[in-house]
C-alpha cells in the first residue's frame, strides 16, 4: 500500500551521462543506471564493460563521478533531483 502510494507521488529526475532519467524517490543511482540503455558502470583495464555486482559497497564496480565528486559508489547513493552522474564507461 504505502509502497505504491509513495511511488505515485514522488519522482525525481537526474542525468546519467547526460541523459535524463526519471525514477521514484528512494531509487539508488545503481538501480537507475539500468533505466538508461546499458547497465554498464565502467570499463575494465582493457576496455570491456562492467556493471554493478554486489549492490552493497563492497566490489567498487559501480563507482562514478556524482555531482563532481569522483569515485562515489552508485549503489550507496540515492537519486536526487538534478543529480549529475558520469560513469567511467
Amino acid at each position: 500500500m504505502r509502497e505504491t502510494a509513495s511511488k505515485a507521488v514522488t519522482l525525481v529526475t537526474l542525468r546519467i551521462n547526460g541523459r535524463a532519467v526519471t525514477v521514484p524517490v528512494g531509487t539508488s543511482v545503481a538501480a537507475a543506471l539500468a533505466m538508461t540503455d546499458s547497465f554498464v558502470s565502467r570499463a575494465d583495464l582493457s576496455g570491456r564493460p562492467r556493471g554493478p555486482l554486489c549492490g552493497m559497497g563492497v566490489c567498487f564496480e559501480c563507482r562514478a563521478t556524482i555531482d563532481g565528486v569522483p569515485e562515489v559508489l552508485m549503489c550507496l547513493t540515492p537519486c536526487r533531483e538534478d543529480q549529475e552522474v558520469v560513469t567511467d564507461a
Partner: peptide, 30 residues
C-alpha cells in the same frame, strides 16, 4: 558480504550477487 566465486563470464554486466541483485531490486531496479 556475499561470497563470489569466479566462472567464465562472471564479469559481464547483468551478472550480480544473489543478494546483490535483491538489494538493487529493493532499491528500484526495474
Amino acid at each position: 558480504r556475499e561470497r563470489f566465486l569466479p566462472f567464465p563470464g562472471w564479469t559481464l554486466p547483468g551478472v550480480l550477487g544473489v543478494s546483490g541483485l535483491q538489494v538493487l531490486v529493493k532499491d528500484g531496479l526495474p
